[in-house]
Write a protein that binds this DNA or RNA. Structure first.
Length: 174
DNA sequence: CAGGCTCTTCACA
DNA sequence: TGTGAAGAGCCTG
């Protein structure tokens, strides 16, 4: 794995890229310490290189509300985790879905398990787990804090009033 | 608000 | 291998 970083507005973004096919394997949330970003995005063995700085920059742009398509690869995950992560990638820019909708679209009632999977999302920002909210349309949790979740949603055009989201923004599968 | 339900994962035996 | 606790949830009274 190759780690590249990008710095913007005092925040560091790191990505871990597959040496064989150039796909994104891991990403970090924005961190104020470079090493923290690297630690979050790396998996052994890895080497640091600026080769994929552009991808790290893209993650940064996505964080600040730009719509970007990424080539990802999911590895070391159970079938359930993989299913959930792939499904979350289907949620379009500017829309949200709920833990419940996700569960139903996967034919299960494992609402909580989905939260657990997203809490361990290896590709935050890239796999838009910030677009998953509770079924009562309140924000729900986020690994980087709901503050960050709220800001990301607003930057991509989903208003958050209090910590609630208007139903017109929910995406339903099928 | 309390409590039960629903699942998966992880730690620890 | 087995059991129990915990989790970014949901539903009912």
């Amino acid at each position: 794995m190759i780690i590249s970083t990008y710095k913007c507005k005092g925040l560091y973004f790191a990505v871990g890229i597959s040496k064989s096919d150039g796909r994104i394997l891991k990403s970090s949330l924005p961190r104020s310490k470079k090493q923290d970003a690297i630690d979050e995005a790396s998996d052994f063995p890895f080497e640091i290189s600026s080769r994929y700085e552009k991808i790290a920059k893209d993650v940064c742009k996505a964080y600040y509300g730009k719509q970007i398509k990424f080539n990802v690869s999911i590895y070391n995950k159970t079938p359930f985790e993989t299913e959930v992560l792939l499904k979350v990638m289907e949620v379009p820019y500017g829309k949200v879905t709920t833990y419940k909708n996700l569960a139903e679209s996967l034919g299960t009632k494992a609402y909580r398990a989905i939260g657990t999977v997203l809490n361990k999302n290896p590709l935050p920002i890239v796999i838009p787990c910030h677009r998953v909210i509770k079924s009562d349309l309140s924000l729900g949790g986020y690994r980087g804090g709901i503050r960050m979740k709220k800001e990301m949603l607003e930057k991509e055009g989903v208003p958050v009033v209090g910590n609630m989201i208007h139903p017109v923004y929910i995406h339903s599968f099928k």
